[in-house]
Amino acid sequence: MEDFKKIKEFTDGVRLSGQEKAQLRANILRTVRTQTEPRHILQWSSIFSNFNQQLKPMTFAVYAALFLSLSIGGAASFAAESALPGDVLYSVKTSVNEKLKEVLAFSTESKGEVEASISEERLEEAAELAAQNRFDGEARANLEANFERHAEKVQIRIEELQNKGKGKAAADLSARFENSIEAHSRTLEKLDGEQMGKFLPKIGASMKATAKLRAGIEAPATTSVQVDSETVIESREENKTPEDEKSENDQEKEEGVDNSLFMNIKSRLGL
């Protein structure tokens, strides 16, 4: 056991089989390819072909929202996807497009996912504004407030998942959220500016709450599981109990969403 370097001779034999490697590659690419790029033109064929697959709830909501926004608001709300604070179409982006995405997400996991992605979007907008020298005090204040709001919603969903006994999903959501905000923050750090210097600490403070939540999830558990039984493919809708439905609808009412309009849309889509 003296020569540690010999270890590699044995351990190098541990690898993925050809089949396993291909399987994972296929899984990864499938997920990579079904993600939308909000700032690019969508391919019509990919929107419609995805309606036939079992999708992750999040991508379905995104596609449905964009499809709907095209039929309702037409070019305006589609173009709004890349709007920045200060642009004419920005309010369409936040009040129509993002609201649609929130409403159309079914499961708690996907709702959490939507909120996380909206929060990220705020940071992307900050970066874009800074690049265009448009990141002023007003923009900063608005983005901060909006980010905090949506980050809080992510935290609410994480807690909900925990309370439902879906510890893995809760941990996944909080880890995914933290990692992506961390990545975005690092990009923003590289941008100079007085406003950026005030903005980033606020974002960091917001994220502390999420980190605390994550620590809470990972506190010593009494049950021991080897492979978590919650590793179900998340493209299936969760089986909601009547209580779940009720509480989620109540939540929507609290958030001031105009249910009537969206209920019509939901039923027309057969949802």
Binding site: T11, E20, L24, S180, A183, R186, T187
Partner: peptide, 27 residues
């Protein structure tokens, strides 16, 4: 070698590359 579990390790690989992809979109 850190998880002692083949399935967990495979899951970790998948998640690693997905996150790397996401990261690469902005960085």
């Amino acid at each position: 070698f850190r998880l002692y579990d083949r399935e967990e390790a495979k899951d970790a690989v998948q998640e690693t590359f997905l996150r790397a992809w996401k990261y690469s979109k902005d960085n």
